[in-house]
Computed example of a mutant assay.
Amino acid sequence: MMNVRHFFAGCLVLILSACASMGEGTPEQKRQAIHQMKNETLRQLYAKKPDTRAQIASAPGYAVFSNANVNLLFVAAGTGYGVVQSNLSGTTTYMNMAEGGVGLGLGVKDYRIVMVFHSAEAMNSFVESGWTFGGNADAAAKASQKGASVEGEAYYGNVTVYTFTESGLALQATVKGTKFWKDKELN
């Protein structure tokens, strides 16, 4: 039984490191890749929910993240990267993320998170502290523009969070925690 656990844990680490890596490149190339991901994600969000364009423009700030998530039976884990943009000061903060949880699930998915901060305090707290906890239940079967996924919109105090699947095949019901932190290399 212990060998099976080690095998799954090793597979999980290997898959996650491959999925979430930004790859090689200079810090400037990585920043540019993050901004391309941000712009494409916002374009997709605006196409699905046109009212979010005005919401983001009038908010003190917003964040966009790319995340790769793996579920193997009772364990879920994911890593990703993104950016927080302050509409008040014009500053950009590059961040990383990691998540882990327990529950029932199987599959791999690549998804995007857009957070809209409705107060400067909420944005500053997120950048400085970065913790989020929550439950998650979803189904996704999507490759490129084909397939379907269940997407969500949630409200946490002064933050609205939109999530949608970019690609993947997953069925999960998990309780997980997510940690966001500043990227020392890119800031």
Rank of each mutant, 00 (worst) to 15 (best):
S58N: 15
K30A: 08
K109G: 08
A59Y: 10
T26R: 14
L42Q: 00
V75A: 09
L104Q: 02
I15N: 06
V64D: 01
C19G: 12
G101Q: 06
S58I: 14
D51Q: 11
L88P: 09
T79D: 14
A76L: 08
G101A: 05
F65K: 09
L45A: 01
K49H: 07
G78Q: 00
V64R: 00
G101W: 04
T92M: 06
Y46R: 04
A33K: 13
S17D: 15
A57C: 09
E99F: 08
T79C: 12
L72F: 08
A54R: 11
N71A: 11
Y46E: 02
S58Y: 15
F65S: 06
G82N: 00
R53N: 04
G80Y: 00
T91D: 12
E99P: 09
G90K: 13
T41P: 01
K48F: 10
M97A: 09
C11T: 06
P60H: 13
S66L: 14
V84P: 13
H35K: 09
N69K: 06
R53A: 15
V4M: 11
G101Y: 04
M97F: 06
F8L: 07
V70S: 04
L106I: 06
S17L: 14
K48C: 08
A63K: 05
E40L: 13
R31K: 15
I15Q: 03
A20T: 09
T91F: 05
P27I: 13
L14M: 15
A33E: 13
Y62C: 15
R5L: 10
G10M: 05
V13S: 11
E24Q: 13
L73H: 03
P60G: 11
A57P: 11
L42A: 02
R43V: 09
S17I: 08
V102H: 09
R5M: 08
Y46I: 06
G23E: 01
R5E: 08
E99K: 10
M22K: 05
N69Q: 08
G23C: 08
V84D: 01
L16K: 00
A18S: 13
Q85N: 11
R31Y: 02
